[in-house]
C-alpha cells in the first residue's frame, strides 16, 4: 500500500487550550478513514488541519512524501465537504460547481461546464442547474457540495460531519452518494456520528478523545472488540 497522506507530530492550540496533542497518522491511497469520538475531542479540528483551514501549531503534513503548505497545490489535491454545505448563495448550482475549476485554471470554461453537467446527471439534479442554493433541500445542497469538490479531481476528500445538519429523511441520499464516490476509489477521511455507515464504508476507524488518537483499527476491531475503556464507554453511550 502506498502512503498518500502522512501526519507527523501534529499539535494545535487555540490560545492556551490545546485541542490536538501529538497526532501521528497515515492514510493510504484508497483508504476510507472514519474518525469518531465525543464532541470536543478535536476530530473536526484534526480534519480541518489537514487542509489548513486551521493552521497547525506544530507538526507536518506530508502528501506523497512532500510537506504541504496552505496553497493552491494543496487545495487542488484535498477536497472538503462541510456540515453546513457552504454553497455560494449568490451563484446558481452550475456556477457553484464550475467557479473554482475555471478560476484556478484547472479546466476551461467549456470543460468545466461539461464536467459539471456530467456530475449533475450522476446525482440526478441536472434540472436544477440554474437554480440558486436557497431553492434546494438540505440533501440536494450537500450532494451538490460533494460534486463541487469532486470536479477539482482531488486525491483525498475530507467530510466534516456531512449529514449532521440534515433532516433524517435526507441522510440516506448523501450517504449513498458518498458510497458511490468511495467505490470509485476516492481516498476519504470522514468525521461522522453515523456509526452504522462507518461500519459499512470504512476500512479504518480512528477513535479520538481529548485531542489524542486513542484507538485505531478496522471497523470490526473498533466496534466489536474495543480495547480501551474510553472507547467502550463512548460506544455504550451511543448505542
Amino acid at each position: 500500500m502506498q502512503t498518500l497522506l502522512k501526519v507527523e507530530n501534529l499539535y494545535k492550540s487555540f490560545g492556551d487550550i490545546e485541542v490536538l496533542h501529538n497526532i501521528n497518522f497515515e492514510i493510504n491511497k484508497g483508504d476510507i478513514v472514519v474518525i469518531i469520538g465525543p464532541s470536543g475531542s478535536g476530530k473536526s479540528t484534526f480534519l480541518r488541519c489537514l487542509n489548513f483551514l486551521e493552521k497547525p501549531t506544530n507538526g507536518k503534513i506530508l502528501l506523497n512524501e512532500k510537506e504541504m503548505k496552505d496553497n493552491l497545490e494543496l487545495h487542488k489535491k484535498i477536497g472538503m465537504v462541510f456540515q453546513s454545505f457552504n454553497l455560494f448563495s449568490n451563484l446558481t448550482v452550475l456556477e457553484n460547481i464550475t467557479l473554482a475549476p475555471i478560476k484556478t485554471k484547472q479546466l476551461s470554461e467549456k470543460e468545466a461546464q461539461n464536467e459539471a453537467m456530467k456530475l449533475l446527471r450522476m446525482i440526478g439534479l441536472e434540472d436544477k442547474k440554474d437554480v440558486y442554493p436557497d431553492n434546494l433541500s438540505g440533501g440536494q445542497k450537500q450532494r451538490v457540495a460533494i460534486i463541487r469538490s469532486l470536479i477539482m479531481n482531488p486525491e483525498i476528500m475530507l467530510f466534516d460531519e456531512p449529514t449532521s445538519a440534515l433532516d433524517p429523511e435526507m441522510i440516506e441520499e448523501v450517504l449513498t452518494l458518498m458510497k458511490e464516490v468511495a467505490q470509485k476509489g476516492m481516498t476519504m477521511v470522514i468525521v461522522t456520528h453515523e456509526l452504522d455507515f462507518a461500519n459499512d464504508i470504512a476500512n479504518k476507524v480512528v477513535f479520538m478523545d481529548e485531542g489524542k488518537i486513542v484507538e485505531t483499527g478496522t471497523p470490526t476491531e473498533i466496534f466489536k472488540n474495543p480495547k480501551t475503556e474510553r472507547l467502550k464507554e463512548f460506544l455504550s453511550k451511543i448505542k
Binding site: 483551514l53 487545495h75 484535498i78 477536497g79 472538503m80 462541510f82 457552504n86 448563495s89 484556478t104 477539482m152
Partner: peptide, 24 residues
Amino acid sequence: GQKEAAHSLGLNYLQLMRYIILPQ
C-alpha cells in the same frame, strides 16, 4: 462557511471577494 468553502476549493482572497463575498 462560504469563505472556508472557497478557500478549500483553492480560490484566493481576491477571487473569494470578487465572485462570492462582495456581491452578497
